[in-house]
Amino acid sequence: MDNRHQSEREYIRYHGATSGEHLVAGIHGLAHGIIGGMTSIITSTVEGVKTEGGVGGFFSGLGKGLVGTVTKPVAGALDFASETAQTVRDMASLSNHRLGVQRVRKPRCCKGPQGLLPRHSATQAEGQEQLFRLTDNIHSEFFIAVEPIDSYCVLISSKVVYFLRPGEYVDREAIFLEVKYDDLYHCLVSKDHGKVYVQLTKKAESTSSGVAMPGPSHQKPMVHVKSESLAIKISQEINYAKSLYYEQQLMLPASENEDCLLLES
């Protein structure tokens, strides 16, 4: 209720620009609040008599002064705390800028195959970053698993299986085999002349009449894997990701689901 005191307080608060000036402004604000509280009764009473006059102005100014005795020191303490916090923030930001602080680890995968938050894994974080590079940061296709092999890498997403050539930077040119789940019939482990392969059997193509033929086709690309246990693991992960994909196809988006659940009275 003291416009003059409030104007002086705002001037002190917004006068500081650097971290050192913020601290000085906080100290000045605290001192201004304490002094204002100590002199509030006298200054407010005199101001009330001058502006309003008579007994009414006297008691009005006295009431404002009594209130200001408590509120002005509290406001000064809050200003001091606010300006001190701003000083700490400015110094921390300046220190981080000077030190050149960089990320310690890559961003974690925030969505696991079951929709839960998985434990951080450096390998999965690297695989997620590779997927974002391949899809130009399209988040509708999310990461499921990655299996680095000696001569290549298997990257499994929610829509596609990518087989990538090794390299420090992954882009579309690194893909030597790409199979979408819409085209995949099943994935299994195959053996030939003592070597183990991951076989991705594609679906049969549509006939000339446009009718889709159920079952596998003759297109069965195979990728060599160094061990049978790893081939089984990759095959299980691909089939699991494929089942998740078709499960998502049967689910309605949230907005459509809400519209369809409205019952007629």
Rank of each mutant, 00 (worst) to 15 (best):
R4H: 14
E8T: 08
G16I: 01
G16V: 01
S19W: 15
L30S: 04
H32E: 09
H32F: 13
G36D: 12
T39E: 06
S40H: 07
S44W: 01
E47Q: 15
V49F: 09
F59H: 05
G61Y: 01
L62W: 04
V70T: 09
T71R: 04
V74E: 03
G76A: 09
Q86Y: 05
R89L: 08
A92N: 05
S95Y: 05
S95P: 04
G100C: 03
V101K: 10
R103E: 15
K106W: 00
K106G: 03
S121C: 15
A122F: 07
A125S: 03
G127V: 00
D136W: 06
I138Q: 15
H139Q: 13
S140M: 13
F143A: 07
F143E: 09
A145F: 05
V146L: 05
D150L: 06
S157V: 07
K159E: 15
V160W: 10
G167E: 01
E168F: 04
E168C: 03
R172A: 13
E173K: 10
A174T: 06
F176S: 05
L177E: 02
E178M: 08
Y181W: 14
C187A: 08
L188Y: 01
L188S: 04
K191G: 03
G194H: 05
K195N: 07
K195T: 05
Y197S: 01
Q199A: 08
K202I: 00
K202C: 04
A204C: 15
A204L: 12
S206T: 09
G210C: 06
S217K: 08
E228S: 10
E237S: 12
A241K: 03
S243D: 11
Y246R: 13
Q248I: 14
L252H: 08
E256H: 13
N257G: 15
L261H: 11
